[in-house]
Amino acid sequence: MAFIDYYKTLSLTKTASDKDIKNAYRKLARKYHPDLNPDNAEANKRFQELNEANEVLSDPEKRKKYDKYGENWQHGEAYEQQARQQQNRPGNYGGNGGFGGGFTDAESFGGGDFSDFFKSMFGGGGSRQTKYRGQDYNAELHLTLLDTAETHKRTLTVGGKNIRINIPAGIENGQTIKISGHGGAGVNNGPAGDLYIKFFIANDTRFKRDGSNLYTNLKLDLYTAVLGGEITAETLTGKVKVKIKPETQNGTKVKLKGKGMPVYKKENEFGDLYLTYDVQVPVNLTEKQKQLFEELSKS
């Protein structure tokens, strides 16, 4: 566990006044506050560090203790204990039985947002009633494209707790949703942080997706392309019959309205499915077929 230079965190020197500390904290907090840096984990981390530095340096008692022991903080509690023992029992020049003890189990104070260094030195969330919002948690959820075709519920385990969340149909790859209040617990009755879930959608279908529209190629035999007819096309969730106009050209694109992905958070709204016809030239022709094509070419 490394020593943390709280003065450096706030870009201050040891001689900083209370006003300097307050100003430095507010200035940096304006820069790194999570509300001003959406989706920026680095800023979030930096903000936690600022909070911790401010918690120590703006509290006269904590600052005094921090300044007194500085980089020797690991032995600070032991020195104090020894000093107390010597005061109470002046005749006792015995050993140093108190060394190594006295550190509080910080987790029991719910100070999950503070570093191990802070917890070891001050024992958790701090004695003052400063409210701190709990840490935001970030999680990833991997789904397939088919999973996102319908709104459904999933149970996630975050921080040892099970959370049942609603996954709206049509959610896209890279999209993040926020579950308010499911982040880390707040300090000193501060509000809990939020849980951010980022979605990674793997495409397990033959469709290409762009927003709520789907795209695919459809093989079309030459005769149907020339004479017209009806074919069956696969959609994401089933099959539909598609009429082919006579003399359909290779590469023709048709739109099947409403057969794409559900539109995110818009009930009963769907994107479209675009089919691009890939006309197949017949192979392995019989002599008779060749003759017929030759006749056609002359006509």
């Binding site: 001003l36 959406p38 896209e172 790859n173 890279g174 999209q175 290409k208 762009d210």
Partner: peptide
């Protein structure tokens, strides 16, 4: 500005997905 950032992030995500195609 935050609303604009949010919109730009949304556009960027959508363009990234399109680029993937």
């Amino acid at each position: 500005l935050l609303n604009q950032v949010e919109k730009i992030q949304e556009d960027m995500r959508s363009l990234r997905n399109r680029l993937r195609l």
